[in-house]
Design a protein around this nucleic acid. Structure first.
Lengths: 337, 337
DNA sequence: GTTTGAACCTGGAACGTTCCAGACCTACGC
DNA sequence: GCGTAGGTCTGGAACGTTCCAGGTTCAAAC
C-alpha cells in the first residue's frame, strides 16, 4: 500500500490509484500519447492535478535512457556569449530538448564546466568559443556529439561566421566613405582573430590601400582596446578609421577617443564586430559587423539534434555570412587628411 | 561506423564484473565510503578507469531521493548577476552540492526559468534580484527552500546589502572631498532602489546639505544613465558630484560626461554601486560601493543548505554591510563652485 | 454467429543506482 | 573449545518512470 505522506511527492502510482487505472495508463496520459480514452484521460488529469503531481525527470530519463539535454558551455563574462545563450534558449524552445548551462568563470575552467555536463548525461554539447585544444575536443567527440560555435576547429561540427568576409564588409564600408588610413585592432590568439586579420588585409589590398595597412595588437576586452587605441593615437599620422576585433574591445577604444577629445565619427570612424548588445546601446551606437546569432543558434541546435538522432554526416563546418550594421560611429572621411 | 557498443555506457555491473566483485562493493568504492579493503578498492578503481566508467547521476539521484542541486535563477544580461553567479560557483564548490543555472532572458521569464529548475528536482532555489511578486515567492517557499539575493522580500530567506548604508558612505566620501551639490540618479522600481534613495536623502540631511538634494529618475541600464545625465547637465547649476544606482547605469553617465567635454573627477565626481567587473575596468576605474559578493554568496549557499538539511529557523533576512572602493572617478570639489 | 481489428487498458520487466540485512572470514578474549 | 566483534563483502529490494507484450471489449465485416 502506498501511504501518501506530506514529505514524499506524489508518484505515478498515487495518481493511478486515485484515478482507478494503471500506472502505464497514467504515464501515457502525462506524455500526451495516444491510447487513452477521452473520459479516462480527463479523469487522470484531474487526479494528477488534485494531487499536485509532477513527473520526476530523473526517473523518466533513467528509464527512457535519454536526458533530452543539450549542454551549453559558455563564458559568462563574454557579452557575445550572453547573446548566444539568449538565442539558444529560443532556438531550443520547440525542439523537445532542454538546455543545461555550465558557465566558465575565472575560477572554473572549461574542463570543469564540461565535466559537470557530462555527469548530467547531456546528449550533446554546444560549446561557445571554446579554448580547449583541438585534440581534447576530438576525444570528447568520441563520447558525444559536440557542436562548436564561433571557433573554427577540425574534427567537430562547427558553426561559425565568415570572419574574413566580415572584415571585407567593414573595410568596403569605410573605403566607400573615403577613408584610406584604416587600421585594425586584432584579437590576438582569440578564435576568429586570424581570419579577421586576413580579411582586413585582403580588403585593404583590394582597395589599393596596402600601404596603409596597420594592425595593432588588441584582444577580447575593453582593457586591450584602450591600450591599442592609445598606441594608435600616439602616432604622427593616426588613422581616420579603425576596425576592431569585437564590440567589447571597441568600447574601450571609443572611451579613449572620447577622453582624447576626438569626435566620433567626425575625427575617427570606428567599426566593431559581433553586434552584441553592447553595440546597440544608445550611447555606444556602434557601427559593427553582425554575426547572425539567430541563424547560428538555430543551426547549432539543429545539428546537435541531428547528430543525437543518428544522422551520420561527416563532421562539417557551416559558415554563416555576417552583415554590416551601420550605426553612428562611422562617417565620411574629412577632406583635410 | 563503430562496431563497439558505443551506444551503452559502462555501468556499475560492468565494473563489478571486470573487478570480480559485487555491484554494491563498487558503489561503495565509487562513493569513497568505508567498507572496502585497500587492495579491492584499488582493483575496482582500476577496472572503472579502464572501462571509462562514470556514475550516472540520474540513477544515483533517483535511488537516493536527492538531487544535491541548488537551482540558480539569474538575469544573464545583468553585470552584477554575472558576478554573483561567478562567486556562487566557488561558494558551492566544497559544499557537496552542484549549481544548476537557469537564465532569465528577454524571451524567457522568471516563471519559466523557475519551472525548469523545479522539474530538475533542485533541493533549493537561489534567486538573484527576482521580480516575481512576493506572494508567488511565498507559494514557492512551501515547495522548497528559497533564498533571495539582492532583493528584500518577506516570507523567504533574504541576503542583501545594507543599501541605505552604502549611500551614506558614498555621500560621506563626497562631502569629505568638499562637494555640496551632490545628486543621485536612482534605480526607479528596481530592487534596492528605494533604500538607496532613502540612504542618499538621510546622508545629505546629516551633512546639512538638504537644500542640495536632487534625485533624477534613472534605472538599471546604461541607457537610463545617459538620459539622466543629460538632464542633470542641462541645468544652470549642475552638480559637482553624482551618486548612481548601479555601475552599469554609471557607465552611461560617464560616457555623457566625456562627450560633453567634462573631466572626471576634476569637473564632476561619480560614484557607482555594486563594484561589478565593469567598475574595475581600467578605463572606467569607477569609485563605487562594493556589495560583498563573496560573503553574500557564501551565506546564500550556507542558508540554502541549512534549510535543505532541516534547520527550522524562521525566515530571516541577513544584511551584509557594503564598503566604499575609491578609484579614479572621485576627487576634491573645485573651489570655484 | 463467428472472425477481425481497432481502441483501450493492464501487469510486469527494465533503467543504474543506493540501501539494507545478512554471510563469511579472521582474530581475540576467555 | 566457544562466543563475539570487526572488517569485508554479497544479494536483492527499492527509487519512479517507460516500454513491451499482452488482454479486454465492442462494433463492423464476413
Amino acid at each position: 500500500m502506498h501511504v501518501t505522506n506530506a514529505e514524499t511527492r506524489p508518484t505515478l502510482a498515487d495518481v493511478a490509484a486515485r484515478a482507478g487505472v494503471s500506472k502505464s495508463l497514467v504515464s501515457l496520459v502525462m506524455r500526451d500519447e495516444p491510447g487513452a480514452g477521452a473520459e479516462t484521460r480527463r479523469r487522470v488529469l484531474e487526479a494528477a492535478d488534485e494531487l499536485g503531481y509532477h513527473p520526476d525527470s530523473r526517473a523518466r530519463l533513467l528509464r527512457s535512457g535519454r536526458s533530452r539535454l543539450l549542454g551549453v558551455v559558455f563564458g559568462i563574462q563574454h557579452a557575445f556569449h550572453v547573446d548566444l545563450v539568449t538565442a539558444l534558449y529560443t532556438a531550443a524552445r520547440d525542439s523537445g530538448y532542454e538546455l543545461a548551462l555550465s558557465a566558465v568563470t575565472p575560477n572554473r575552467d572549461e574542463t570543469e564546466a564540461t565535466a559537470s555536463l557530462l555527469q548530467d548525461r547531456c546528449e550533446a554539447l554546444i560549446m561557445l568559443g571554446p579554448q580547449t585544444p583541438a585534440h581534447t575536443l576530438a576525444r570528447l567527440t568520441t563520447r558525444l556529439p559536440v557542436v562548436v560555435l564561433a571557433r573554427g576547429v577540425r574534427g567537430a561540427d562547427v558553426i561559425r561566421t565568415a570572419d574574413a568576409d566580415g572584415l571585407h564588409q567593414a573595410v568596403d564600408h569605410l573605403a566607400r566613405l573615403g577613408h584610406q588610413r584604416i587600421a585594425h585592432i586584432d584579437g590576438g590568439r582569440a578564435p576568429g582573430a586570424a581570419d579577421r586579420r586576413r580579411g582586413y588585409r585582403e580588403a585593404m589590398d583590394a582597395h589599393g590601400l596596402s600601404r596603409h595597412v596597420q594592425i595593432v595588437a588588441g584582444g577580447l576586452t575593453e582593457e586591450k582596446g584602450t591600450t591599442a587605441a592609445r598606441a594608435l593615437l600616439d602616432q604622427s599620422q593616426p588613422p581616420t578609421a579603425i576596425t576592431i576585433f569585437n564590440d567589447r574591445c571597441a568600447t574601450g577604444v571609443l572611451d579613449v577617443l572620447a577622453r582624447g577629445g576626438l569626435q566620433v565619427p567626425e575625427d575617427v570612424s570606428v567599426v566593431g564586430y559581433d553586434d552584441s548588445h553592447l553595440a546597440r546601446l544608445a550611447h555606444i551606437n556602434l557601427t559593427t559587423i553582425a554575426q547572425d546569432v539567430h541563424t547560428m543558434t538555430k543551426l547549432a541546435v539543429a545539428r546537435a539534434i541531428d547528430r543525437i538522432e543518428g544522422a551520420n554526416v561527416a563532421h562539417r563546418t557551416i559558415v554563416v555570412p555576417p552583415h554590416l550594421v551601420i550605426r553612428g560611429t562611422t562617417g565620411p572621411a574629412t577632406t583635410q587628411s
